Amino acid sequence: MTEEIRCIGCGTVIQTKDKEGIGYTPNSALEKGLETGDVYCQRCFRLRHYNDIQDVAITDKEFLALLNGIGDADALIVNVVDIFDFNGSLIPGLHRFVGSNPVLLVGNKVDILPKSLKKGKMTQWMKERAFEVGLRPTEVTLTSAKSKSDIEELLELIEEHRDGRDVYVVGVTNVGKSTLINAIINHSAGVKDLITTSQFPGTTLDKIEIPLEDGHFLIDTPGIIHRHQMAHYLGKKDLMLVSPKKEIKPKVYQLNAGQTLFLGGLARFDFIQGNKQGFITYVSNDLMIHRTKLETATEFYEKHAGGLLQPPRKNELGEFPELVRFEFSVKEKTDLVFAGLGWVTIPDAGVVAGWAPKGVDVIQRKSLI
Rank of each mutant, 00 (worst) to 15 (best):
L368G: 06
Q15M: 09
V324A: 08
S149M: 08
K19R: 14
G88E: 03
E332H: 12
T298E: 15
G171F: 03
G164Q: 04
K177R: 08
L239A: 11
T143Q: 01
V13Q: 11
F45Y: 15
C44M: 12
L205Y: 07
R6H: 10
A231M: 13
Y40V: 00
E302G: 09
P347V: 12
D38F: 13
V13C: 03
C10F: 02
C44N: 13
F63S: 10
V351S: 11
N174R: 00
K121C: 02
R48K: 15
D286K: 14
L266E: 04
D18C: 01
S367H: 07
I225D: 10
T197I: 10
N186D: 12
I112E: 05
M230F: 12
H216S: 12
F45H: 12
Y50V: 01
I210D: 09
M122Q: 02
D85S: 14
R129I: 10
G176K: 05
P201S: 12
I280R: 13
V133E: 13
V98N: 06
G223M: 09
F279A: 05
L67I: 01
N27K: 14
E31Q: 14
D111S: 09
H95P: 03
G69M: 02
H49A: 10
T260S: 11
D18G: 01
I8N: 08
L239S: 11
